[in-house]
Each structure stands twice: as structure tokens, then as C-alpha cells.
Amino acid sequence: MSETDIGVWGVLIAVLGGAIRVGTPFLFVSLGECLTEKSGRVNLGLEGNLVMGAMSAYAISYYTGSPWLGVLGAGCSGLILGLIHGLLCQNPKVNHIAVGIALMIFGTGLAFFLGKPFIQPTAPHLPAVSLGFWSDSPVLRAALEINALFFVGLALVPAIYFMLKNTKWGLMIRVVGESADAARALGYRIQLIRLLTTMAGGFLAAIGGAYLSLYYPGSWNEGLSSGQGLMAVALVIFARWNPIYCLYASLLFGAAAALGPALQAVGISWGYYLFNAAPYFLTLMIMIMTSSAKQNLAGMPGEFTR
């Protein structure tokens, strides 16, 4: 009897630990996308930033021996992809979604192309902070072995929230996202602001990629990302364009992804394919339930209405 008790606790702890382990890249891409979308742009190409970031981080960490330089390098690669996205979208006739898909293809292709030599070698990893020192249970200790980047992300959440809500910069971003006409009347440089938020979003998404290659699962290969970047757009809708909800949504998606393997590890194995699709199904359901033809989603930047 006691054995099953350990099993249930094990599942819970695994899911909690997994929420952070699997959720961290989601956190970065969703924060990045949130920032971009707040200014009235959609970047569907964050998958490209993520994969490119993963590769650059691993390569730089391998060459320099410093994983933090790798993270920075990843961010810069994301900055460049964001710059291209931002510049292309300045033309009103160009479709944002198409640009996103184009850069996704380009970013992943380039990452695979340049990443060939880095599949075999092992690069230095990012450090982790052990919060489980008080516990005797190795299980709990492992679950509380929290990567440093998660704390960075955690600090970014209130920072971005505060920036958007209470600073002049945040106001400019929100006005540009809410109504281009109003922004123009106020004399804001719409294109420049959107360009900068897209670049910042690209930077963050690429750091999400660096997390994948430098911490968890912690190696570079072509199958590394399973669409975490593509999910960014859905996550932001899920989070109602609110950085704090982005954190919750990321943890929820992380937990959902951890649940399937955790249940299988204790012998509950029915329908794992459907389990794998659960986060997507959940997002769709929430979108359907919270949307309405009559009014816009709460928090949605006004520029998205047709």
C-alpha cells in the first residue's frame, strides 16, 4: 500500500518539478511574444529564434567555455532574426504571419546547417540552484534543483509587467498596439517601437532556446525543439497578453507535458498520444470559451481587430 503512496507523491513531485523544467522555455518565448504583440505585431517565427538560439548558445558555450556567453550569443541571434522580422513587417502589405513562417524556415534551416559540428561535442551547461538542501528526500531535492535561467525569467515577469504598466516606454508600446492612429496623433514613432519590441521578443525567445541546449535536456541536436516556439502565440492568447499570466500558462504547459511521462512511470499508460496533445486541446478549448464574436478578448491589443 505504502508503495503506491510513494508513487502518487512521486507523480506530483515530478509534475511540479517538470512544470519548471519543461516550462522555462515556454516562459521565455511567451514573454517575448507578449512584448511583441503588445505593440501590435505578431511574430509566428519564434520557433526559428528558439532553434537558432539553442544552436548558437551551444556552439558559443562550447568554444568559449562560458554558458552565460552562450546565452548572450543566443540572445543576439534572436535579436537579428527579430530585426529582419521587424523590418519586413514595416511594409503594410506584407503579412505578419507569412514573415513569421518565412523566418521560422530560415532560422531552423540555418541552425541545422551551422549546427552540424556541434551535435557530438559536449558543451558546458548552465548552473542550477539547489533549493532542496533542507530535505532528505533525493526526489524532492532533484525537483527543487532549479536552473538559473528560470530565476532570470521569474525576475523578468514583474519587470515586464511593471514596464508595460507604469513606464513611459510601456505606455508607448501599449498605445502603438492599441491604436496606430492614436499613436500617430501623439507623435510616436510607430515603426521604430514595433521594431524594437520585435527585436526584444526575438532576444527572449532565443534565450528559451539556449535553455533547451544548455540546461534541459541539455544538448544540441536537430530534434531538440518540439514546437515550443510555435506554441508561443497560443500561450500568449492563453495568458491574455499579461506577463504574469504568461508565467502561469508556461508552468501549466510544462506540467501538462510532464504529466504523461510521470503517469507512465508509475504504470498508467493508456492513450499517451492523446496525453501529448492535451495542452493543444486545452488551449483550443480555452480560446473557444473565452472568445466572442461580439467583443475582443480582454487584454488583446486593439490593432489585431480586423
Binding site: A14, R21, V22, A142, A265
Partner: peptide, 20 residues
């Protein structure tokens, strides 16, 4: 895991198993 190359899921599965 449901696929031949799903690194995150493989890592998650490995961690859950160690926990068990």
C-alpha cells in the same frame, strides 16, 4: 514517448523514473 526523437519528453520520463 510516442516519437523517435522527443528530447524533452525523454528527459522528463527519465526524471520521473528516477523519482520512482
Amino acid at each position: 514517448t510516442g516519437g523517435w526523437a522527443l528530447p524533452v519528453k525523454e528527459a522528463e520520463a527519465a526524471n520521473s523514473m528516477v523519482d520512482q
